[in-house]
């Protein structure tokens, strides 16, 4: 009887710890950096939803969308050029009408390398938004982020990169690339 109870207790404990780990992975990031997690605002597409944030602090009005895209053919070359950023960085979720406003540049977030590029987006309501699209690779997988606001792209860029560099976000990005 005691053995059976032990097994049951262990099983419940294992299950509970699994649930705990899952909740921990998805727990909202601390808002001390003035980023507040919001619901993923886009309809379902080929990749599972990621995480979305809105900045309430110095970068007020900026929104950031981050997700993993597992399975990517350039396993060795990584994010090869700016065209790659145009294709994969999820800008089309915000608006299919976007134009790069400058050549991209190399970006590094933690151990992930890739490229980032500035864009202008024509929104459906006629407004013009600024955005930074970021594509980072790890072997055959991608981590993409796009930050946008109605103002100036540089503000969105520095705030977004700073946020992505926080330990919580780096942990989450690695977990997402691991498929967890």
């Amino acid at each position: 009887m005691r053995r059976a109870a032990t097994i049951v207790a262990a099983a419940i404990g294992f299950g509970a710890s699994s649930v705990g780990a899952y909740q921990l992975a998805l727990a909202p990031v601390e808002t001390s950096a003035h980023w507040r997690e919001i619901a993923w605002p886009f309809p379902r597409d080929g990749w599972p939803a990621g995480r979305a944030f809105r900045c309430d602090g110095a970068c007020a009005g900026t929104e950031l969308y981050v997700r993993a895209k597992l399975g990517f053919c350039n396993c060795d070359r990584g994010v090869a050029d700016d065209d790659e950023v145009d294709r994969v960085a999820d800008l089309d979720l915000i608006s299919p009408r976007f134009v790069a406003t400058a050549p991209g540049e190399a970006v590094r977030v933690g151990e992930l390398h890739g490229r980032g590029r500035h864009y202008g987006l024509d929104m459906l309501d006629g407004a013009r938004h600024a955005a930074i699209g970021i594509a980072l690779s790890r072997r055959c997988d991608l981590l993409v982020a796009v930050a946008q606001n109605a103002g100036e792209a540089m503000a969105a860029r520095s705030a977004a990169l700073e946020f992505l560099e926080t330990p919580e976000m780096k942990r989450w990005m690695i977990a997402a690339l691991d498929g967890r």
Partner: peptide, 8 residues
């Protein structure tokens, strides 16, 4: 071209 890039 600009904007979204269709599937390769």
């Amino acid at each position: 071209a600009t904007g979204a890039v269709p599937t390769e």
